[in-house]
Simulated assay, not measured.
Amino acid sequence: MTRPNRPPIPLSEPQRRLLMQLRIEGAAPRTRLAQALGMNGASVTRLTQSLLALDLIEELETPEAVARGRPMVPLTVSGRGGWAIGATPHLGWLELVLVDFRGRPLVHDTTPFDSPDPRVFAQVVETRLQALAATHGFMRGKFLGLGVAVPGYALPGDRNRRAVVDRLAGWDDVPLADIIGDALGMPVWIENDASVAALAEYYQDGIIGRYRSVLTLFLGHGVGGGLIAERDLFLGEHGNAGEVGRLFPGHDARPSGIDLLRTLREAGIDVDSLADIDALMETHRPVIDRWTRRVIEQLEQAVLSGIVWLDPGAIILSGALPLRLLQTIAAGLDEIGRHRDENYRAALPPVLASPIGSKAVVIGAAMIPIHAVTAQHTPL
């Protein structure tokens, strides 16, 4: 059994609550934090002093706030609190991102990679980190760990063991966190790519401050999903919550990028990559429109089921498809839902299209060690 990772910065429950409140609000003075958390001023002062000493939060010194006294000086999460890495293997290349403690990407890097061996993956990650460190000097702060996004579901008994796609045969049913962590000498978290995409989407401005629970559908080469429930990544009993791909068997038409490429090729259009789709949106609109209408119909039941069971604040459509295509699908799903429930008086979640694109996966992977600092339950 793979050893679980501990939080990279051990905090008390009140410290975690205050830190999460600042992530929710963006910035807030001590008086506001005391009110929101139901604490007295002295308790908040002690907590903020300890978090300031750890460089996890910082003061925003505005002249007006300083003039009104220290309790009115806004506090915010500090990027200097640490940094983390996210990594994921693609067909023919490897993607890395480094984020600071606020979750802001510092460096985005891609490099050729075609090995099915996780040890080779670790070696390439180490080589790229050394080169990036020499160029950017990011290793001066506290390192929190590496999150690895894997295109595969967790196997019984250990969510670090995954059933993966054929091109990553060496990753199948092996203790990935131990293999990669031992090779790199660092704490490693392993998680499904669509699940970590949900984490990246949740930490975006305008989402974490507005919603406690979010359902994300990720349309990449395949189709997957992820859940944030009560501000934490919900993985389920066996680590496979959000495996919506099972609703769409691979031998049938699917709401996925691979399916769109196949549809375009069958129409006689020469296209090799999802990156080429945006340029075809106008010239081959009829084919793409037909595919889009079918995808909206396919995703309707998945969205409705998610609303019924999770009651999310929002549904986010994310993935490697062009933003305007995601926006069209999101608008179609939103319209269907509101038309179906026009006499239903409970609140319904908006369906939103994400502007992050495919980078949501690698950003989300990097957010796992950072999220573990404040999460109530540490991801394995």
Results as ranks from 00 to 15, higher is better:
Ile57Arg: 09
Glu59Trp: 08
Glu61Ala: 09
Thr62Ser: 15
Pro63Cys: 04
Arg68Ala: 14
Gly69Tyr: 08
Arg70Phe: 09
Pro71Met: 04
Pro71Ala: 01
Met72Thr: 15
Val73Lys: 10
Val73Gly: 13
Leu75Ile: 09
Val77Tyr: 14
Ser78Cys: 13
Gly79Arg: 13
Arg80Lys: 15
Arg80Pro: 05
Gly82Met: 12
Ile85Lys: 02
Ile85Ala: 12
Ile85Asn: 05
Ile85His: 06
Ala87Asp: 07
Ala87Thr: 04
Thr88Ala: 07
Thr88Tyr: 00
Pro89Asn: 03
Pro89Cys: 07
Pro89Met: 01
His90Thr: 03
His90Trp: 13
Trp93Asp: 11
Leu94Ala: 01
Glu95Arg: 12
Val97Tyr: 01
Val97Phe: 04
Asp100Gly: 03
Arg102Pro: 07
Pro105Gln: 02
Pro105Val: 07
Pro105Glu: 10
Leu106Thr: 07
Val107Ile: 15
Val107Tyr: 11
Val107Cys: 06
Thr110Phe: 09
Thr111Ile: 09
Pro112Arg: 01
Asp114His: 11
Asp114Ser: 13
Asp114Ile: 01
Asp117Ser: 07
Asp117Ile: 06
Arg119Met: 07
Arg119Gly: 12
Val120Trp: 05
Val120Ala: 11
Phe121Cys: 05
Phe121Met: 11
Phe121Arg: 04
Ala122Cys: 09
Val124Cys: 06
Val124Met: 07
Val125Ser: 07
Glu126Val: 02
Glu126Ala: 15
Arg128Val: 02
Arg128Thr: 01
Leu129Gly: 07
Leu129Trp: 05
Ala131Gln: 13
Ala131Glu: 13
Ala134Thr: 08
Thr135Lys: 15
His136Asp: 12
His136Pro: 12
Gly137His: 12
Arg140Tyr: 08
Arg140Gly: 10
Phe143Ser: 04
Phe143Glu: 03
Val150Lys: 01
Gly152Ala: 04
Tyr153Gly: 01
Ala154Tyr: 10
Pro156Cys: 06
Asn160Lys: 03
Asn160Val: 02
Arg161Pro: 08
Arg162Asp: 13
Ala163Leu: 13
Ala163Met: 11
Val164Cys: 00
Val164Trp: 03
Val165Glu: 11
Asp166Ser: 05
Leu168Tyr: 08
Leu168Gln: 10
Ala169Gln: 12
Gly170Val: 09
Gly170Asp: 09
Trp171Asn: 03
Asp173Glu: 14
Pro175Glu: 04
Pro175Cys: 00
Asp178Leu: 03
Ala183Leu: 00
Ala183Val: 01
Ala183Gly: 00
Ala183Trp: 03
Leu184Ala: 00
Leu184Ile: 02
Val188Trp: 00
Trp189Gly: 04
Trp189Pro: 05
Trp189His: 14
Ile190Ala: 03
Ile190Gln: 03
Asn192Met: 01
Asn192Gln: 04
Ala194Asn: 02
Ser195Phe: 00
Ala197Ser: 15
Ala197His: 02
Leu199Pro: 10
Leu199Tyr: 13
